[in-house]
């Protein structure tokens, strides 16, 4: 599903060139649940932005669902982002003046889906994350965990191939975190590649595979305890 080869990315910070990604090779298969760990500044957010087509890579190649993703125009990147990728953020990033169902329907709006169909699908996904009864609520009327579940529904409503979650539990207590992780684990079953960025070990242990970044390089890539046999199979599948 995701295929990165020798990816480099640097940022200019004043006069200094900050070399953030220094040759990343990474394959993630459909249906995998992967966590990326690393200290702050290790490049994990940049990696996510590159995978999520929010940022361009300087060097190397990136294939998503078999399509080359290098050198896209902003408009094409936006299209692919809408079709192939779903985002979940640490601070949810729901649009504050839209209700839960409107937030979930937003990506469909940008894909030109008709209003009725949009609302039907959005309702369906809200139900999937267990918030059907909160459809008409504004984000500020929901708890953190509920907001994150709305955000997950929004990320999934377009049936993406990849779900990128940047510290999805960073703003939540441990009980709620577990609930959110359960939802993410559930998605895995639908053939979506789920990539979670986290710095919490217990969260990483709830995924199948753990990729460790240090200074823009992958230093460790292993199946977790939970991953076990499932992870092995997935890894084998991603080889090609």
């Amino acid at each position: 599903m995701i295929r990165l080869r020798n990816v480099h990315k640097s940022y200019r910070m004043g006069d200094n060139l900050l070399h953030v990604l220094r040759g990343i090779d990474l394959d993630i298969a459909a249906g995998e649940l992967v966590s990326i760990m690393g200290a702050s500044g290790s490049g994990k957010s940049t990696l996510m932005n590159v995978i999520g087509l929010l940022d361009r890579l300087d060097e190397g190649s990136y294939e998503l669902d078999g399509v080359d993703m290098t050198g896209l125009t902003e408009t094409r990147a936006a299209r692919y982002r809408g079709q192939l990728i779903g985002f979940v953020f640490q601070s949810f990033h729901l649009i504050p003046f839209k209700t839960a169902v409107e937030n979930v329907a937003l990506p469909l709006y940008y894909q030109g889906v008709a209003r009725r169909e949009r609302n039907r699908l959005a309702g369906e996904y809200l139900e999937k994350v267990g918030l059907a009864d909160r459809a008409g609520h504004l984000p500020r009327e929901l708890s953190g965990g509920q907001q994150q579940r709305v955000a997950i529904a929004r990320a999934l409503v377009t049936r993406p191939k990849v779900l990128l979650a940047d510290e999805p539990t960073g703003a939540l207590d441990s009980v709620t975190s577990r609930e959110v992780m359960a939802v993410l684990q559930g998605i895995q079953g639908e053939g979506v590649a789920v990539v979670i960025i986290t710095h919490e070990h217990d969260i990483a242990e709830m995924t199948d595979r753990l990729v460790h970044l240090v200074d823009g390089r992958i230093t460790e890539d292993r199946a977790t305890a939970r991953g076990g046999a499932v992870g092995e199979a997935a890894l084998a599948g991603s080889g090609g």
Binding site: A78, R79, P96
Partner: peptide
């Protein structure tokens, strides 16, 4: 800015 960022993340094109 944040809202526009979100819109872009969920597939809004620059034109929209």
């Amino acid at each position: 800015t944040r809202e526009i960022g979100v819109r872009k993340a969920v597939g809004a094109t620059p034109a929209s």
